[in-house]
């Protein structure tokens, strides 16, 4: 017993103070990219050609980047001879409107808005979610799971993952939705009582990500059920996920 107590003292109190203070992100972390149109050569397509997921397009010379597809590999930034695409360390990129993830120099990302008044009244202090992995690679799942550890302590915000969709207020879905999971996802969605919300986490869940146009998967969650919150990344940093969750609850 004395050893248990000694370990308890040694392990200290480790819960982060977020959202009051933001923990430091790694030096090499890639967050929301910033687009500097002036740096872009008109007839150059280097960034488009290196992008592994086809997230970049140029329409009459204007760079458009879809963060719903982006896996944040940083290839585009490296391929550009100028500084047309520079990744910032801004992790706050969850959105409520899928189209807000398509950014250019002029169109900046519009962060997630709070739920409507009625939903907020019901969910603000108590949100129960059922997680469904539908083709996720276990990285998004792992970084959702991490929110439950003492370091993040998701429960202090009244958000909790539950075992049954019938006990849940919504689904948090990862993965591009494989053909083999389509039915199970729909059943889980139907089992959640109204009003309900759906949160899609990770580039696969947002657009199909690295599996766009694979025969065996769909192209993301919103092709099957309506999505209320989109959290980009491959996988998103736990801060990005938590920020998104708190934002729709008006707590961030």
């Amino acid at each position: 017993m004395i050893k248990v107590l000694r370990a308890r003292i040694f392990q200290k109190y480790r819960t982060i103070k977020f959202p009051k203070t933001v923990p430091q992100l790694p030096e090499r972390y890639l967050g929301i990219p910033k687009i500097n149109q002036d740096e872009c050569k008109h007839d150059c397509a280097e960034c488009i050609e290196v992008c592994p997921v086809g997230a970049i397009s140029k329409i009459s010379g204007i760079i458009d980047l879809d963060l719903g597809k982006c896996i944040f590999c940083g290839k585009c930034s490296g391929a550009c001879s100028g500084d047309a695409i520079v990744f910032s360390k801004d992790y706050r990129m969850a959105v409520t409107d899928r189209s807000s993830l398509c950014i250019s120099e002029k169109i900046v990302l519009r962060r997630a808005e709070t739920l409507n008044k009625e939903m907020l009244r019901i969910f603000k202090r108590s949100l129960r979610l059922r997680q469904v992995s539908a083709g996720g690679c276990n990285a998004c799942e792992a970084d959702v799971n991490v929110l439950g550890t003492v370091g993040w302590d998701l429960d202090r915000f009244g958000i909790k993952f539950v075992a049954s969709p019938r006990h849940a207020d919504g689904l948090l879905v990862t993965g591009s939705v494989t053909k083999n999971m389509r039915k199970a996802l729909l059943k889980a969605y139907e089992a959640v009582p109204e009003p309900k919300i759906v949160i899609a986490v990770g580039s696969c869940a947002l657009s199909g990500g690295l599996f766009i146009s694979h025969d065996e998967t769909g192209n993301g969650v919103d092709t099957i059920i309506p999505v209320d919150l989109y959290i980009p990344g491959c996988p998103p940093h736990p801060l990005t996920i938590l920020d998104g969750l708190l934002r729709i609850l008006g707590r961030c």
Binding site: G135, G175, S176, T178, N180, M181, H214
Partner: peptide, 11 residues
């Protein structure tokens, strides 16, 4: 199994 099948090898 198979629920997570994304058809990677084929691609």
């Amino acid at each position: 199994h198979g629920y997570q099948h994304r058809g990677i090898e084929k691609k």
